[in-house]
């Protein structure tokens, strides 16, 4: 007879999140950092008096002053306000891609896991989608449609969906063999009720972790696309655009290129810390099965 009892899973998803934050400092640190970054993006108009797009050719390439804390770029635009406004693009892309990919992937994944006929077809389509490189796919879409943040989001979401589908499907396949799901079947619960009460709540934990990784990757790919000129249109300040534009002046003032890069690194780090912490903190039982 085993002396060990299995680890107690968290009763509700919310309680699990809270406990993960309490027991895993990386969750708290990552979340706090991310909140700070998000706040600075939202409150950008209050934090800076400069219009990030306002050109001031007479004051170009200025060093740090009381007026322009991080100096100005080659067109005399205030770097600090551009970085603050750039936060909006990065976080919006990260959040939207994660949200769209997770919701769509969850729906397809649950269907694939439960409907045997659909499974084979869906999974082959997903394999096909997974073989498309994200950056190339986004560039192709940009070539067809006009360059916009929306197109970037859609392109990245489409590429990320298969990964979510695979994850959800594997969780569902594991869950449906578990005695408590069989117990629900024997209890006479309908398929929708089983999905809603037994399957869905138990996929949330791994899904949340996956969503953070998707967000981190989307933020990086958006910056890369913008850097290549195939992402966010140049009239919107984004970190990728800033790095691309200041690249020519790298020898003159490397800080112009590095500062948006640092902002990008800190943001992705915060998202990844949150994700790693949640992975370790949320329901270790299910994580071990994946």
């Amino acid at each position: 007879m085993a002396d060990a009892t299995p680890p107690a899973p968290h009763a509700t998803f919310g309680a699990g999140l809270w406990q993960a934050a309490c027991t895993h400092p990386t969750v708290a640190i990552g979340a706090a950092l991310l909140a700070l970054i998000a706040l600075s993006g939202i409150a950008a108009p209050l934090l800076t008096v400069h219009d990030p797009q306002a050109i001031d050719p007479l004051n170009s390439m200025a060093p740090s002053t009381a007026e322009n804390l991080l100096g100005t770029d080659h067109l005399g635009r205030d770097v600090l306000s551009r970085i603050l406004y750039g936060t909006r693009v990065s976080l919006a892309v990260g959040t939207l891609v994660a949200a769209i990919a997770t919701v769509v992937g969850l729906a397809i994944g649950i269907l694939a896991g439960f409907v045997r006929l659909l499974d084979a077809v869906v999974m082959r389509v997903m394999d096909g989608l997974m073989s498309i490189p994200a950056v190339l796919f986004a560039i192709a879409l940009m070539a067809v449609f006009r360059a916009s943040v929306e197109t970037v989001v859609i392109a990245l979401a489409i590429v990320e969906v298969p990964r979510v589908v695979r994850l959800v499907r594997s969780v569902v396949l594991t869950l449906r063999e578990l005695p408590f799901v069989e117990g629900a079947i024997v209890s006479g619960s309908t398929l929708p009720a089983i999905l809603w009460r037994h399957i869905l709540p138990n996929t949330l934990a791994p899904l949340t972790v996956q969503a953070t990784y998707i967000a981190a990757s989307a933020i990086i790919v958006e910056a890369a696309l913008s850097f290549l000129g195939a992402g966010t249109p140049p009239e919107i300040p984004s970190w990728g655009n800033m790095m691309a534009e200041s690249r020519a002046f790298f020898l003159l003032d490397p800080a112009l290129t590095l500062m948006p890069g640092v902002a990008l690194t800190i943001t992705v780090l915060a998202v990844n810390m949150l994700g790693d912490g949640l992975r370790d903190g949320l329901d270790p039982r299910l994580q071990g099965r994946l």
Binding site: A11, T12, P179, F180, E182, G183, R197, N202
Partner: peptide, 9 residues
């Protein structure tokens, strides 16, 4: 252990 949904009361 496995026959009861851990997230339900």
């Amino acid at each position: 252990y496995a026959s009861l949904n851990p997230r339900m009361t």
